[in-house]
Simulated scan of single mutants.
Amino acid sequence: MAESQIIISTLIVSLVFVGIHLGSTKIYGFSEHYKKKILSFSGGIASAYVFLDLLPLIQRADPHLHAVLGNNPFIMVFLEKAIFGVAFIGFLVFFILEYLAVKSRYNNAHRTTKTLKETNASRNVFYVHLGLIALVSMIICYSLRFEILTTGLGVTIYTIALSLHFFISDRSMEEHYGKFYVKYGRYLLAFMPLIGWSLSVLFPEGESEAYILLAFVAGAVLFNVIKDELPRLGTGKPLFFFIGSLLYSGLILILPWIH
């Protein structure tokens, strides 16, 4: 694929992500009935994406991690687990952020005697949480060039999966931070895909760096799948979850035949 085609393709995908960040609050403004179906369908696709796309991808990354870390004997001992360690760091970072957000909401609710649903987390937690989600959004778009070069047509279904992930992640931010996110946060997040795309044009990532960055993203997405994107007991719509997961799984499995 020509360089100009790659730049245009990655820009289009980045603009899709910009639209998701800007419009997620409105998209989620459907009736309660449709919210459950949308969340369950998104959860199915995101789950299939993690297990059939991201995890197999980072499993192939050990040689590239070795290229970055070199032949340090201490590091070599842990090399086989190192790339999954990067993914686990991403998982832990977002686990801690979620814990801090929920704890802050509980503390504020107790202090103001309001219900948890009426209470937002503190601004300090919001700034940290928003900053790290913005970083992940930027990394994803910075790595788009690598995704297009390695998957080709697969970037279309990759875009679908990540768009739904962003939608669910943004919904969680609105739930935790309310007006802080709606008035300020979503605009910063909408700006990050363009920053990531610009950096990829100015400073194209190497293959080794792309694998490592995507391993961190895999951990972050995996946490969101476990925490938020699987339908909650009594509130999810299992049929739509299965439809989403089977649809995305089918696309992943037939993609090699298309190529």
Results as ranks from 00 to 15, higher is better:
2 A>Q: 15
2 A>P: 11
3 E>F: 11
4 S>A: 12
9 S>C: 08
11 L>I: 11
12 I>D: 04
15 L>K: 04
18 V>T: 14
18 V>G: 05
18 V>A: 08
22 L>F: 12
27 I>T: 12
27 I>V: 15
32 E>P: 03
32 E>D: 12
33 H>K: 14
33 H>N: 11
34 Y>L: 11
34 Y>K: 10
35 K>G: 05
36 K>R: 07
42 S>P: 03
46 A>F: 04
49 Y>Q: 03
55 L>V: 15
57 L>A: 10
57 L>P: 04
59 Q>E: 15
60 R>H: 14
61 A>F: 04
61 A>T: 12
61 A>V: 07
63 P>F: 05
63 P>G: 02
70 G>W: 09
70 G>P: 05
74 F>S: 13
75 I>E: 12
76 M>W: 14
77 V>M: 13
79 L>D: 04
80 E>W: 13
87 A>T: 05
88 F>H: 06
90 G>C: 05
92 L>V: 11
96 I>H: 03
100 L>F: 13
102 V>K: 10
103 K>N: 08
108 N>A: 09
108 N>M: 07
109 A>T: 06
111 R>F: 09
112 T>M: 06
113 T>R: 06
113 T>V: 06
114 K>W: 14
117 K>M: 12
120 N>T: 10
122 S>F: 08
124 N>H: 10
128 V>Q: 07
129 H>S: 13
131 G>Y: 14
139 I>C: 05
140 I>H: 02
141 C>W: 00
146 F>S: 06
146 F>H: 12
147 E>W: 13
148 I>D: 00
155 V>R: 02
155 V>F: 07
160 I>E: 01
163 S>W: 05
165 H>E: 04
166 F>R: 04
168 I>Q: 00
168 I>M: 05
169 S>P: 02
169 S>G: 05
174 E>M: 09
174 E>V: 10
175 E>P: 01
176 H>E: 10
177 Y>S: 03
177 Y>D: 00
177 Y>E: 01
180 F>C: 00
180 F>L: 08
181 Y>S: 04
181 Y>T: 03
182 V>P: 01
183 K>L: 13
188 L>E: 05
189 L>V: 03
190 A>V: 09
192 M>C: 13
192 M>A: 09
192 M>D: 02
194 L>T: 04
194 L>V: 15
196 G>Q: 06
199 L>V: 15
200 S>C: 11
201 V>T: 12
205 E>N: 13
206 G>D: 08
207 E>N: 08
208 S>H: 14
209 E>M: 14
210 A>H: 00
212 I>T: 00
213 L>V: 03
220 A>N: 11
220 A>E: 05
220 A>I: 10
224 N>I: 04
225 V>Y: 02
226 I>R: 08
231 P>H: 07
234 G>Q: 07
240 F>V: 01
241 F>M: 14
242 F>R: 02
243 I>C: 02
245 S>C: 09
246 L>Q: 02
247 L>I: 15
248 Y>L: 15
250 G>F: 02
252 I>M: 07
256 P>L: 10
